[in-house]
Design a protein around this nucleic acid. Structure first.
Lengths: 235, 235
DNA sequence: TACACATAAAGTCATCGTGACTTTTAGCAC
DNA sequence: GTGCTAAAAGTCACGATGACTTTATGTGTA
């Protein structure tokens, strides 16, 4: 292995999916490798960087190709370039990894096949390469970020109730949140505005529908914000 | 430009340097380009990724080669891979950028020449490529990180007074901090321990010397922490 | 038609962290 | 000994937060 290192782009794709009990949990699609190294093992979707594609475009296009999904959120995670990450393979690969969120409606449309399957984030098999570490790091980033940005929106549709928003937070953080305090915090932040509409047909007091406040901007990525928004990748 | 993209590793190196008034301000070394594109313009130190080097090793070695410095802190910043970043050059370059801190003692040893010079971070010239954006982003990361990690230590020697620590925070954040409140916050965090020694020879009450508490760990980089510490790069 | 049920939504209360500010302490210089 | 300066300790008001209680408002059922 002494040729020029080659660049690959992979993506950790998160969605909320109901488990057997109907509880929505964090899940991600993986693809089965069909050649060495790690033939037969599960791995993150990805592929080589094409010469005329930007990094984020590459992430978006392999995402679409493998899972048929369009992400609601897409952000660079990290570049992995250790020498030992591909075991005894001849080729040296530097992976630039993105992480993405797809909404519930979108995730249902996802392709699933013998070689593409969804796994719950807290119950993964042994993955190819250093992909277990990568997923762990992506989870850590997601959990950190949910506190000070609007990533939760990536899992919701345009309008949502505060209970739905809270459910997303609970799934990401893996713990229960007090409904009253959650409401107070979200309303005080100004990140969300009431639409005036309510959900009918519930067997209790009808909840108000909210949407994200678009003027409200919390600088998520600092000076990179402008640079980032090139493709369909919303911020 | 349709050949395989090539990988370069560059580094934003921060140090505190006194200005004409003797005030310590954030500064970084830049190298002058001696060929096209951007011939003659200032740029971040860096170079192509060697086939047998990890990313962080590459950052550390070009750092040593261009400035003669060993960093007290070294962390990956971001991978830049837009198509337009090299203007009309024939070669497509994906830059994996690191950021580093060097201590005051170390920074004094820095090589400076016609083609390597230090600039204050808030007073940079027009740089080659997208390097102005990169420095802006590195500054943003540094300022964010100083709040919840120990990066400030990178600018100090083993023992320091709380006034010195505060001076580092003030230089990074670009604003004055209340000495009493700063002391209270730092002591409460447990990140720092008193050595018992005091500084003599001041024209006022002698300050206590502190050092960083090594058992105390605030997970700076989450699951990447172990992965990161390979080279001389201390955390 | 009235009552039970479930969750939305609003309100209460004690505690903790933080910013602004004051007071006391300890060395040095004259 | 007196005065200077910054270290170090202390004070106070305010706002955010966690735990909890109360009220509101729809649907389903007797």
């Amino acid at each position: 292995m002494s040729q020029q290192p080659v660049i690959a782009v992979s993506t950790v794709i998160f969605a909320l999916r109901p488990d057997e009990q109907g509880v929505r949990r964090l899940a991600l699609p993986l693809v089965r490798r069909i050649r060495d190294p790690f033939n037969g093992q599960w791995a993150l979707p990805g592929g080589p960087l094409e010469a005329t594609e930007t990094l984020v475009d590459s992430a978006a296009s392999t995402l679409r190709a493998t899972t048929g999904l369009a992400p609601a959120y897409l952000e660079q995670l990290y570049a992995f370039g250790n020498l030992d990450r591909s075991a005894e393979s001849t080729e040296r690969v530097v992976s630039i990894v993105y992480w993405a969120l797809v909404g519930a409606a979108e995730a249902e449309r996802a392709i699933e096949s013998r070689n593409v399957q969804w796994f719950f984030a807290d119950d993964l098999p042994q993955l190819a390469f250093d992909h277990n570490l990568i997923v762990e790091y992506a989870l850590w980033r997601l959990r950190n970020k949910v506190g000070y940005s609007r990533v939760a929106h990536g899992f919701l549709s345009e309008q949502f109730t505060l209970a739905e928003l809270r459910e997303v937070y609970e799934a990401i953080l893996g713990k229960q949140l007090d409904p009253g305090n959650f409401r107070r915090a979200v309303e005080a932040s100004g990140a969300v505005v009431a639409t005036g509409e309510r959900v009918a047909g519930t067997k209790h007091r009808p909840p108000m529908l909210y949407r994200y406040n678009s003027d409200f901007d919390l600088t998520d990525q600092g000076p990179l914000a402008a640079n980032q928004t090139k493709t369909g990748a919303k911020k």
